[in-house]
Design a protein around this nucleic acid. Structure first.
Length: 650
RNA sequence: GCGCCUGUAGCUCAGUGGAUUAGAGCAUCUGACUUCGGAUCAGAGGGUCGGGGGUUCGAGUCCCUCCAGGCGCGCCA
């Protein structure tokens, strides 16, 4: 706010659009500075120092609040000294007044954003790569809600794809007893799975990797695979019903897994419903009449409906290739991207068709989760978004662009513009981690291995969470706190790295509890709570934190803490603009670090530090404790945006 | 071949045109609890910001080029 006021005044004086601020290298220059006059010098063709002096003169007349002095330094910097007593006081009272709402803003103005994330194939346990998606998606949802967007969090369930079909084939035909091909009774099939031994998603993990290996050699099994895929697509037979049951059981397992990490949704969107509600037919008709799609009669795509992309047909070293994207195969079936176009149109409410909905259940956060369903009811509630964000890893960039291009070709230019592929890099395994999972690599060589569901190579999400809980259990008050801390550790670990960077997963690094970690952040919060609990054993005594009097001097650690606290609203805005949890993770750690410094050395000049709760001067005592309190509140708000619960005691 | 991403300390990462000395964490070494939580803190060592050009008063940051690594370019999802 202090910066905003100064920027506003300077904008007026110099008639510029933007005034960047930063921190001067030396404290005697002040607390804030801007080099705006240096860049202005070029345009005005005058000495920068001269401009700076003039601006400083005018600013002094404006009387900015919280600014006590304005200094000009060569070659033309404008430096501001803050009136720390007024400033710190205003931060404290602002955070105390706003409480949980501190940091929120009205950026979104209630604009509706649909965020789709997680989207794990319902055929096996989730691994840590899926976790990255869920953590990024959920954090973005939380952040956008704090910016007052009307957010719908969706999880897409591809229950009719090949991956589910493969597990179904495995269950029916990999081990005896085999399915007879027509029965509605799958009792003997379910008998192969023992829920006392292993969870269903884990069981499928191994089953899936076994069946994909068998496909390489087993002709008969491949024939069954084609048959099962056909039956699932047809939807009107016992195998399709069985497949839906398999997928549903896996979805329950996935939701249980992500729930351990505080990831929640508003709606589950099933691909089978997209299929049965005729979404594709409508989109196909629109594409045909808009001329966005053409039927090829010759060339490599003869017999297909394609979207014209790039250069079309061209010669490469592999022979004649086409950049065009096939949407309808020559056998008349639609590819995934085709369905995705229809689905994207639904998200914006421009498809002219809708799902049927019913309640799925209540999530651990107390919120109702809905699902699309063939036996649901129509509802005017989901979709119809102003903006759509699809959280999908970077390998699908090309296909996402095809979807958005098709929207454009259909005349939905605004919707195409408001479609965002939130692309993030994948999680790979360090050689050491891969070796630990039994992959044949040299653990001592630097390098990484891709995870592979088909090969069954990957760190399962629940295994990671369990390992974290085990590690934390020793020093924690109870089992519940170990779970909360494990969530903090894992979410932070997945959040702190920029979305554009690959995460090379390593057990030692992921399970760390010291330094730049979620555990450190929660620890700092718990410590602050502990101080307050000792200072004011009775709840009503905390009224003293509504401070009226300030000490005569503000120490440097106090200034640093106050400045960092004031940054939180802009950290949230930045995270919302970048669609990434990383800025908030960095902010949380910095805030915790600045607080710890304030806690350890509140009076840098004093020979001996006095614990806050033992300070005799009531003004200083209440003031310092008020700082502890607003820190506690701000960190908790930040961690909330990251889906991390700030414990009061560990 | 074309396109996208990444390259900053031994390792994992910040740093989205500003200040003489490029910041954290981990690891290594040295220290600090009879006072508010030691999952902490203080200190030390460790850098040709992949290389080379350019733009600018000023470049880790922008442009060009080269190098290295990753990922895309399916009638798979």
């Amino acid at each position: 706010m202090i910066q905003k006021d100064a920027a506003k005044a300077i904008k007026k004086i110099l008639a510029v659009d933007d005034v960047p601020f930063n921190v001067p290298p030396k404290r005697e220059f002040g607390d804030l500075s801007t080099a705006i006059c240096l860049s202005q010098a070029k345009l005005q063709k005058r000495a920068p120092i001269q401009i700076a002096e003039e601006v400083a003169h005018q600013l002094r007349n404006v009387k900015l609040p919280y600014i006590s002095e304005i200094i000009v330094t060569p070659p033309g910097y404008l430096n501001f000294k803050i009136d720390h007593i007024r400033y710190v006081k205003s931060i404290i009272s602002r955070v105390r007044r706003q409480g949980e709402d501190f940091g929120k803003s009205n950026e979104g103005r209630n604009r509706r954003i649909l965020v789709e994330h997680t989207n794990v194939n319902p055929n096996k346990a989730m691994h840590i790569g899926h976790l990255r998606n869920a953590v990024i998606g959920d954090s973005v949802v939380r952040t956008l809600r704090k910016l007052n967007y009307d957010v719908q969090a969706c999880d897409y369930i591809d229950d009719t794809g090949v991956q589910v079909a493969d597990v179904v084939v495995a269950m029916l035909y990999l081990d005896e007893p085999f399915y007879d091909g027509k029965s509605e009774d799958f009792g003997s099939i379910w008998g192969k799975y023992d829920d006392k031994e292993i969870s269903f998603d884990y069981w499928c993990w191994d089953l899936y990797s076994r069946v994909t290996q068998s496909f390489e050699t087993d002709e008969e099994l491949n024939a069954k695979r084609a048959e099962v895929m056909h039956l699932i697509e047809a939807q009107d037979n016992p195998v399709a019903v069985f497949a839906k049951e398999v997928a549903t059981r896996i979805v329950y397992a996935h939701l249980a897994t992500v729930s351990r990490l505080n990831v929640f949704y508003d709606l589950l969107n099933w691909e089978s419903d997209i299929f049965m509600r005729g979404f594709w037919k409508t989109a196909f008709d629109s594409l045909k009449s808009a001329g966005g799609i053409v039927y090829e009669t010759e060339g490599p795509n003869a017999g297909c409906w394609v979207v014209k992309m790039g250069k079309g047909v061209h010669q490469t070293e592999d022979g004649v290739r086409s950049e065009d994207k096939v949407l309808v195969r020559s056998n008349g079936t639609v590819v995934y991207t085709g369905k995705d176009i229809a689905y994207q149109m639904w998200k914006f409410g421009v498809l002219d068709r809708d799902f049927l909905y019913k309640r799925w259940g209540t999530q651990d956060n107390g919120e109702e989760l809905w699902t699309t369903s063939p036996d649901g009811q129509p509802m005017q509630r989901f979709g119809m978004a102003d903006r759509v964000i699809n959280v999908i890893d970077v390998r699908q960039s090309y296909l996402q662009q095809v979807v958005y291009d098709c929207l454009r070709k259909l005349g939905f230019k605004k919707q195409a513009r408001n479609s965002t592929h939130l692309d993030y890099e994948v999680v790979v395994l360090s050689n050491a981690a891969a070796a630990e999972l039994g992959v044949d690599v040299n653990a001592n060589e630097s390098g990484a291995q891709a995870m592979s569901g088909r090969k069954g190579v990957g760190v399962k999400a629940d295994d990671l969470i369990d390992a974290m809980v085990v590690r934390l259990n020793e020093k924690v008050a109870n089992q519940h706190n170990a779970g909360v801390l494990a969530t903090a550790a894992i979410r932070y670990f997945m959040s702190r790295i920029s979305t554009g960077k690959m995460i090379t997963f390593d057990f030692d690094e992921a399970l760390r509890t010291t330094g730049d970690t979620g555990v450190y952040c929660v620890y700092a919060h718990a410590r602050a709570c502990s101080i307050l609990a000792k200072a004011y054993p009775k709840e009503q005594d905390r009224d003293a934190l509504n401070i009226k009097k300030m000490p005569r001097q503000i120490t440097i650690p106090e200034q640093e803490l106050a400045k960092k606290l004031a940054e939180f609203p802009s950290a949230l805005i930045k995270a919302g603009q970048e669609l990434s949890p990383a800025p908030l993770a960095h902010y949380a750690f910095e805030l915790a670090t600045v607080f710890t410094d304030f806690y350890e050395t509140p009076d840098p000049d004093a020979e001996k530090q006095t614990p806050f709760i033992k300070i005799k001067d009531p003004v200083l005592r209440n003031y310092r404790l008020a700082l502890v309190d607003v820190f506690r509140q701000t960190l908790a708000n930040c961690l909330d945006a990251l889906g991390i619960v700030a414990l009061e005691r560990i």
